[in-house]
Design a binder for these strands. Structure first.
Lengths: 146, 146
DNA sequence: GCCCCATTGACAACAGATTGTCAATATGAC
DNA sequence: GTCATATTGACAATCTGTTGTCAATGGGGC
């Protein structure tokens, strides 16, 4: 019994690691022509809707604020983003897109749409949505266990 | 339409990244008391059944052979694994568990079983198995698209 | 108003993974 | 058998993420 449960946990972890690598590769391939890396795109994408602090971005993506901080500093350095004053917190400046950043995100969009269409065609929109729901549920359960 | 498809791809990628981090944290926590890291445990676990070459391990886990190589060298250095001659290929030595490696894997087993039981209890064996199946399907589709 | 505590940014050390390159070693076509 | 090709290990550079520590900031209990 516990042997089978161990296998479930191990299988889930291994397939999660593999999916991570695969999506990373897809993102890398989409972002590169625009001069971004996958990590840069991810952080820029997080502030498309509204500026967020570095810590907010980290929390929303489940990664450490330090990792986001380094990427954000690079993005500001490259001109894709800029820090805005945060009325709610003097230290926690807000990461906001520059026009260049917005244009870069927009430049990726066609290929992003194309790749998304390929995935949906190959897997089916419903099955893909179900997979995302299952993964989200799993993530929530793991969060509750931690 | 393509906007929604883009959202599907982005959501799938983001939740995959998050699951990666969560399972990594679980593995890290399980492996640490035994003196292993998550990556070491993963490589050791890959050769529990039979010795494999570094490249084989990389392929089976979907990561680069160089990453496995460094971990394998460390494992051999620490005494958890050893290189065996490979009759089929003089350069591609086989990574095999030492007794110490086998004992270490065994030492993690109780906690591994306990954590697995917690996950199964919280999510349900069927739903977990379904999630794994959905993720596996997604991974296969991504593989076919690449 | 003051102090304790959590959050935040800055900095540093380190782990894990990738890419690229080169030489050594199979493998297969001929 | 020979040669082109693919696989493999070794080495190096780089990227992304982690943890840990410290000081600055903000918020809540008193």
């Amino acid at each position: 019994m516990s042997r089978q449960q161990q296998e479930l946990l191990s299988s889930a972890a291994l397939i999660a690691f593999r999916l991570n690598g695969q999506f990373l590769a897809v993102a890398e391939q989409l972002a590169r022509p625009a001069g971004l890396t996958a990590a840069w795109w991810q952080v820029l994408g997080a502030v498309v809707g509204a500026p967020l602090s570095v810590s907010d971005i980290g929390r929303s993506m489940g990664i450490s604020r330090q990792a986001v901080q380094r990427t954000a500093d690079l993005l500001v350095d490259k001109g894709f983003a800029e820090y805005h004053e945060n009325p709610a917190h003097r230290r926690a400046k807000l990461v906001a897109l520059t026009d260049a950043g917005r244009a870069t995100i927009a430049a990726i969009s066609p290929q992003h749409a194309h790749e998304a269409a390929r995935l949906v065609t190959a897997m089916g929109a419903t099955e893909l949505a179900n997979a995302i729901a299952a993964m989200t549920k799993l993530s929530e359960v793991l969060d509750a266990l931690a």
